[in-house]
Design a protein around this nucleic acid. Structure first.
Lengths: 195, 195
DNA sequence: TGGTTTTGGCTATTGACCTTAGCCAAACAG
DNA sequence: CTGTTTGGCTAAGGTCAATAGCCAAAACCA
């Protein structure tokens, strides 16, 4: 019985790869063990439970997505940064659908590490929006709007929610442009007028 | 052994209620059977499989959500209709989180009944957007944007994605207002100008 | 009404899966 | 080279979806 040379990180990374192939919820420990060339109970030397593995994959995914959008925003500002971040976000999600699924919800209530990871990704968005001079509630609302936009579009796209396959790129571009337009008018007074 | 008087509809409806309590994926046939006062294998007299039950709950949910937004749009037009639909959508989702989860993705590729159900809900949105005189690609993009907005916000909210519990109502209002602003400028030429 | 058929419960069983217990050899530390 | 830790393994238990086969209740029908 030669050793397989596993480690916690290898197991989690492999689980993430398989999650992108079949979905995290459909990933079984038996399948994961087989890919790692090991019997199923051996995995428990590297993880505490399936739920713990899910948490680890979720944290990995949140960190990766945060890094992807952060990298895209470097050296850009304003709508330029918004477009770059949006594309980075969407591209990462399309390349990692299984991971993406578990990026937007807390893995458990009161999970400090999880909250910190998500917070640091959200902070990138907050920083980019400073160019629009939004503060306090205005900023919170804009961040939530941006996250809703991105998550909604990407979630619908990756789960097949858009009936027509064609022209999804253009629809996304349009969505982000619409958001920048809305941002330009974010602090306009509310009235019923319509052009 | 007196009979429980079950029917397919009762089973599906009860499953939907329990899905709202614990999530559809966490719903076990054992728990469903117990609530119905019946042993687990007895359920198979009314359904073909767990996957089939999921499909039925999904179709029920899509129908209900479609009816909710359709009802809200009656007698309204323009941004008035958009706000009414948005609130109906969000309220329904908050009241039925388990069902909402399965409204946005096709239950299976090439499921004709499923596609038709979703299409009829999307058609309501398309009708409301006619007030903005959008046609062809403009309309497709706007519908996708609106669906993305709603789904993204509601999905983040119901899964606990927004860290701060407070002021979510205002953020939603702001999001929808932003969308109506963007719609007013939907056909503006693209340029880099920013106010 | 009485006989037959269909329907809707049930118990028992199988197989997939997660998980724990306990064994033993490989790696490692001195 | 010896002792300890580590990382595999087999075996076994519990939960779940699903199937097979039984039997009584309901429905049908003459």
């Amino acid at each position: 019985m030669p050793r397989a040379g596993l480690s916690r990180d290898v197991v989690v990374e492999t689980a993430a790869i398989m999650a992108d192939e079949v979905g995290l919820n459909s990933l079984t420990l038996a399948a994961l063990a087989e890919r790692l060339g090991v019997k199923q109970p051996s995995l428990y030397k590297h993880l505490d439970s399936l739920a713990g593995l899910h948490r680890s994959v979720s944290l990995l995914a949140k960190r990766e997505l945060g890094e992807a959008i952060s990298r895209a925003a470097i050296g850009r500002s304003g709508s330029d940064a918004i477009f770059a971040m949006s594309h980075a976000y969407r591209n990462w999600a399309i390349q990692h659908p299984g991971r993406y699924d578990v990026t937007q919800s807390p893995v458990a209530p009161r999970d400090v590490e999880d909250e910190a990871t998500m917070m640091s990704a959200v902070q990138v968005i907050a920083d980019v929006l400073t160019a629009y001079r939004l503060e306090g509630d205005d900023s919170v609302d804009a961040i939530r709007a941006f996250r809703s936009l991105l998550h909604g579009f990407v979630s619908l796209e990756t789960t097949g929610g858009f009936a027509l396959e064609a022209d999804i790129d253009r629809s996304f571009e349009r969505l982000i442009r619409g958001f920048t337009v809305a941002l330009d008018h974010w602090k306009d007074p509310v009235d019923g007028a319509q052009s």
